[in-house]
Amino acid sequence: MIHFDQVSKTFAASQRPAVDRITLHVKQGNICVFVGPSGCGKTTILRMINRLVTPDGGTITIDGRSIMQMDPPALRRTIGYVIQQVGLLPHRTIAQNIALVPELLKWPRDKTEKRVLELIEMMGLDPSEVGHKYPHQLSGGQAQRVGVARALAADPPIMLMDEPFAAVDPIVRLRLQDEFLRLQQTVQKTICFVTHDINEAIKLGDYLVVLKEGRLVQTGTPIEILTQPEDDFVLSLLGDDRGVKILDLTRAETLMEPFENRLGPIKSNGHRVQSIDPVKIALEMMMQKNTDEILVCKGTRPVGILRWPAIKTHVNRISGGTV
């Protein structure tokens, strides 16, 4: 869907390139998360996609078409854009803010109105309550939801999100992340997401791009990066609790001892998890119930048993014996 080929950018006031020969591919319907410390070039990469920044080397294509051949405003109208500071227009109501891009695209008024209502509801807000308010009357979390709604207004196939949840408090952030994942299930956008928070990246990303000083360090799915970190930089970025993070992304079924066509009664202490549940949940249950084995089920049918030694061995193997 979005393809970067040897893309570079050096800003005038700097010697070091902000983005240095990046090549990568973002798949349709995926959430691609760009993660790295500040100054790693993640925001610049994002802003090159909608041409708020012009690359000085390489090409970016969307569906095979170079973005340089497109008119910037027209291009931007087909790409949703959400930023940390939200940037709602303070002189327009919430409904008018969401209606902005449809207006620019000259949609008929009733179509726009219908879409605005739909989006406010989709964000879990009450249109009759919020629609006529002005941005300064919203809480941080509400404003951020409106920012997302505004970006989705014209149903763009691509969304760019630059640290959208960084300015809200941790509890609201977790809720917004959950809502965001649920929303993505229904809208299925191709999303480029920038964050400096590795936990957020692992939680939200289908595909991670780890960056350092403008260069691409490692790409892959969250579990690939967690289990096979490329170097010490990625390792330190992942943090000391890498083992726990891995267990959060490992399904119970991958570590269980399967019941191979075993019939007859199964010894069970009554504690069970689903086969697709993360191992971390099973582990928490073990600690709570003071047991070292848990039944793994598919629906109501028991399919295997998960034991503490198996988990320990797994973690030790991938994180070099730290647990």
Binding site: L52, P72, P73, A74, I79, V86, L89, L100
Partner: peptide, 13 residues
């Protein structure tokens, strides 16, 4: 505010 202008530009104004 710069972010308001940035958002407006990002939306294709």
């Amino acid at each position: 505010p710069a972010e308001v202008k940035d958002a407006a530009r990002g939306m294709g104004m």
